[in-house]
Design a protein around this nucleic acid. Structure first.
Length: 207
DNA sequence: AACCGGTTCAACCGCCTGCAC
DNA sequence: TGTGCAGGCGGTTGAACCGGT
């Protein structure tokens, strides 16, 4: 839609970049008084020199009162991984199952934390499989395990295309610093989340 | 103290979909 | 049925931040 050079990006009156506190307050106040919806006209009516899209994004990802940010718990991480295995990069769909979390946050989380470790594990595994054929056996075990939990819905994971597994063939997941903040310092000390741990926890959860 | 490289995350971009006309 | 518009979504970017040297 915004395909057309559509005034937005060319209009010198349209502001881009980080939101100011003043803009935030304007948006919050306007929505408090008038509600959400019809973002383009909302932006104009509120007197914001922003596109409707920009306002919507700012509201949904940051200003909404029920938005929770940071401190993704191990339970949430599990859920993210499980749902990602189900649906792939359907971030908004995944976000619907994590109250207070936004698709943008989940997407960022996945890309910066989980995917990073996935790639590391994959390259490690590639190296070791070159020297040890038995690795393949354990990999297929992993695949079988993952496939066992694979839902009936058809899913071709976009990220893992090119790999044989329906689920990334990594053995370990990062340890999430739960309560305390986003410092990822303890990540490298011990990767405590083995694949078996993850799935057995899911089994316990009845999934 | 300054620099540098890696990480994180807010925001933008472009495509897709649904809906009204 | 076709067209245009608005919103939704996933991918990408770039600035800010942080830790190591």
């Amino acid at each position: 839609m915004d395909k057309k050079p559509c005034n937005t990006s060319q209009d010198p009156e349209v502001r881009k970049g980080p939101w100011t506190l003043e803009e935030d307050l304007i948006l919050i106040n306007y929505i408090a008084n008038h509600g959400e919806g019809v973002w383009n006209s909302l932006a104009k009516a509120a007197g914001l020199k922003r596109t409707g899209k920009s306002c919507r994004l700012r509201w949904l990802n940051y200003l909404r009162p029920d938005v929770r940010r940071g401190n993704i718990t191990p339970e949430e991480q599990l859920l993210i991984m499980e749902l990602h295995a189900k649906w792939g990069n359907r971030w908004s769909k995944i976000a619907k199952h994590l109250p207070g979390r936004t698709d943008n946050e989940i997407k960022n989380y996945w890309r910066t934390r989980i995917q990073k470790h996935t790639k590391q594990a994959e390259s490690f595994q590639q190296q070791s499989s070159e020297t040890n054929d038995h690795q393949a056996a354990s990999t297929s075990q992993m695949s079988a395990l993952a496939a066992h939990h694979e839902p009936m819905e058809t899913y071709s994971p976009p990220i893992f295309q090119g790999t044989l597994e329906p689920f990334p063939s990594h053995h370990q997941f990062p340890t999430i610093p739960d309560h305390s903040s986003c410092t990822s310092d303890n990540n490298h000390t011990s990767n405590d989340w083995s694949m078996e741990d993850i799935w057995s926890m899911q089994l316990l959860n009845g999934d």
